[in-house]
């Protein structure tokens, strides 16, 4: 082999780059996130597998329906009616953002901008009294 003094370091750099996830993890087991599910309620708006993969579709569609068309009632695939509201409907059962939303989102590095406008359930109490209208409740 010729130019081993350049080829070998080059290959080592290559390995350092492509094997990054392996030595970053160092064989440690990373448990999958376990979001805390609401205890009082059994059924979500749509079936669990759909909600798990596609809840962002529903939230996105709801926002557009409410903001643009002032439509506030969602009829689910089972025919049940739901209030199209993140704070009044979703968070009624999923009342802990840190233990429900954030667990998977942090695991995947997803930072949804829901909370740019909406309030976390337990933060509402910290708001000044005047802002506690029905809409923000």
């Amino acid at each position: 082999m010729y130019d081993a003094d350049k080829i070998i370091p080059g290959l080592i750099v290559f390995l350092i780059i492509v094997l990054f996830p392996y030595y970053y993890t160092m064989g440690r087991m990373v448990p999958a996130p376990k979001p805390i599910k609401p205890t009082k309620y059994k059924k979500c708006v749509e079936p669990l597998s759909y909600m798990r993969a596609a809840h962002m579709d529903i939230l996105d569609a709801w926002r557009d329906e409410v903001v643009r068309h002032e439509k506030r009632v969602y009829v689910s695939s089972t025919g049940k009616e739901w209030d199209m509201s993140l704070q009044n409907e979703c968070l009624r059962c999923h009342d802990n953002k840190a233990k429900f939303c954030d667990r998977c989102h942090n695991y995947l590095g997803v930072k949804p901008y829901c909370w740019d406008c909406h309030f976390e359930p337990n933060k509402i109490k910290e708001l000044p009294h005047k802002m506690m209208t029905k809409e923000t409740m």
Partner: peptide, 28 residues
């Protein structure tokens, strides 16, 4: 087409940590 992205990451983490396990069934 949505996939269960948490299931995907679980699978990939199993691969990179050398603790591979069968992927979740409804992964897509």
């Amino acid at each position: 087409l949505r996939t269960d992205i948490v299931g995907v990451k679980e699978l990939v983490m199993g691969l990179v940590s050398f603790h591979p396990h069968a992927p979740v069934k409804d992964i897509g």
